[in-house]
């Protein structure tokens, strides 16, 4: 059974077309990631599913039924921006949303316990990680079958991010379906069963992280870190990421000395060199010619 089936979805904001015919299928019980840079249209897609944002054309089915106010109750949604009221406590926020969704009061206690939330603290006093957990608890108040998260770990520190990933995995292990949007390739790679790569309002590739990496074929990635000069002279496709470049090559043994020589001649000071397996980001670069961030 498909949890979500989306066909030919289009959405314009005025003259700007944010979704240009998106096709997507999310299976029941999997973690599905939408991976793409800012502006790709991930949030727009999610808001159509979870908030009932109007769209121009296309077809959306939730567990085989037309998307509507009723079927939307099967979806829990954690938006990127917190929807907790700053001046209310954790419990009061949960009570408010429970009233809106007619969820049971017992559920509030369960969720507070499940996520170790400080129930008497005001939302504005919560750290980023706990605020995200509170929003997750709000989304789970009425026990949805599909959980949708928009950039769930953007802005969180590494430990909170790992904790949050664990929570999402547990959710999947209970047989629920997760759809998450992210521009962190690690997040998609670590967490997702399947990934859809999105760019400029379109899904340009879908598959498991392994399948996607096969798109790169036999290539490997050389990463070089340091104070780098003479990059324009490298004869291979590469992307820059801070003080690091990632070069995609077919034969690293031949290419590596060549590249290093060019860089050193141009006056670079190289600190670290690694040969790596390709990541989803490299897939994205190969598909679009640009980086994720």
């Amino acid at each position: 059974m498909m949890a979500l089936r989306i066909k030919g979805l289009r959405k314009r904001y005025g003259d700007f077309e944010a979704l240009k015919g998106v096709d997507l299928e999310v299976r029941e019980g999997e973690i599905f990631a939408l991976l793409g840079p800012n502006g790709a249209g991930k949030t727009t897609l999610i808001r159509i599913l979870a908030e009932g944002l109007a769209y121009d054309s296309g077809e959306i089915k939730v567990f085989g039924k037309e998307l509507s106010r009723e079927t939307r109750r099967l979806i829990g949604y954690v938006p990127q921006e917190s929807i907790a009221y700053d001046l209310l406590t954790v419990r009061e926020n949960l009570e408010f949303y429970a009233d809106l969704y007619n969820a049971s009061r017992e559920r509030i206690g369960e969720l507070i316990e499940l996520f170790s939330l400080p129930e008497k603290k005001k939302a504005k006093e919560l750290s980023g990680g706990f605020k995200r957990r509170l929003n997750l608890a709000i989304a789970l108040l009425y026990d949805p079958k599909i959980l949708i998260l928009d950039e769930p770990t953007t802005g969180l520190d590494v430990p909170s991010r790992r904790e949050f990933w664990e929570i999402i995995r547990n959710f999947r292990n209970e047989g629920k379906t997760v759809l998450l949007a992210t521009h962190y390739m690690e997040e998609a790679e670590e967490l997702a069963d399947r990934v859809a790569v999105m760019n400029e309002g379109k899904v340009i590739a879908t598959g498991t992280p392994g399948e996607l990496k096969h798109l790169i074929g036999e290539e490997s990635i050389i990463t070089i870190r340091g104070l780098l000069k003479g990059l324009e002279g490298i004869g291979y496709p590469f992307v820059e990421r801070g003080s690091e470049i990632r070069v995609r090559v077919r034969n690293p043994r031949e290419a590596l000395p060549e590249i290093v020589e060019i860089l050193v001649k141009a006056g670079s000071s190289v600190k670290e060199i690694k040969i790596e397996e390709p990541t989803l980001e490299d897939v994205f670069v190969k598909l679009t010619g640009r980086g994720l961030e």
Binding site: R72, R73, Y77, E81, I83, Y85, L100, Y101
Partner: peptide, 10 residues
């Protein structure tokens, strides 16, 4: 953004 959520609720 809370009104969107309220509008999306029942």
């Amino acid at each position: 953004g809370t009104l969107r959520r309220i509008a999306a609720s029942p």
